[in-house]
Amino acid sequence: MAAPKHSLDWEAISLCLVFGALAAVAILFLVGPTLIMLLTSFTPSQSLKFPPDGLSLRWYVALLDADQMQAAAWNSLVVAFWTTVFSVVLGTAAALGIARNRSVLARACDVLFMSPLLLPALAFGFAALIFIHKLGFAPSIPFLVLGHIVVCVPFVLRTTIAALSQLDPALLDASYSLGGGRLMTFRRVTLPLIAPGLAAGAFLAFMASFDNVPVSLFLADERTEVLPIHLWQQIETNLDVRTAAVSGLIVIFTLILMLLAERLAGLTRQMR
């Protein structure tokens, strides 16, 4: 059935105009700042001015001597790597137990595992600091990784549970009836089918850990300083153009990783 046709549907036009305008402003707003910062980071001068006076790689070259920044970046990568590994292993196992399980206990676990996304992360970071202090430990990389797993594992769980709930149970039954054991069925049937969701979740967890400030603020000490905290302090104290260069590098790497994740795991499909 087609709608009754008027000569011109003013309502449809005005709705499209208003929504189109709002969305256009919003998209510009979302993408613009990152682009502006990226361009600014190529400035040859001492100050952060847009548009820059020219284009140069001067501040990127200066990063080669920024020892503290490099150490912080390395720490961040190590923490994000281990956080992702543990989040993927523990998260996938938990997702297998939770997905399609309607029991009260499974629902309760689901709520518990998702709650770090809603609770103020900074309060959790502080609580974790008090906790390890009471146990007689000092902040260190393993505790930092533990804290990051708590706030990053929800990303893996969300995408993996979504992938599992789209999995046709008949496929598993077929595998079992053909004599496949549980491990075999997981490796040869379940895992390949949920791999895109799992990969997208792993990617999100990695980025969330690499970017985390509220938990690292309390669980990282002088020796284990991570990149976002280092940058945050740099920006608070003295605005250095090298900070813009690091930011530029982060943006470029994020973009490359995102394009890879889109190619390999269909990232945008997993986010819907």
């Binding site: 993408v31 990152t34 600014t40 940058l231 945050w232 900070t243 930011s247």
Partner: peptide, 19 residues
């Protein structure tokens, strides 16, 4: 375009706004 900013570090995005 929508998730690009989510995945770019918050510190970096906030820094962009200072500029």
């Amino acid at each position: 375009l929508v998730i690009l900013p989510v995945l770019t570090s918050v510190v970096v995005r906030t820094f962009a706004w200072i500029v």
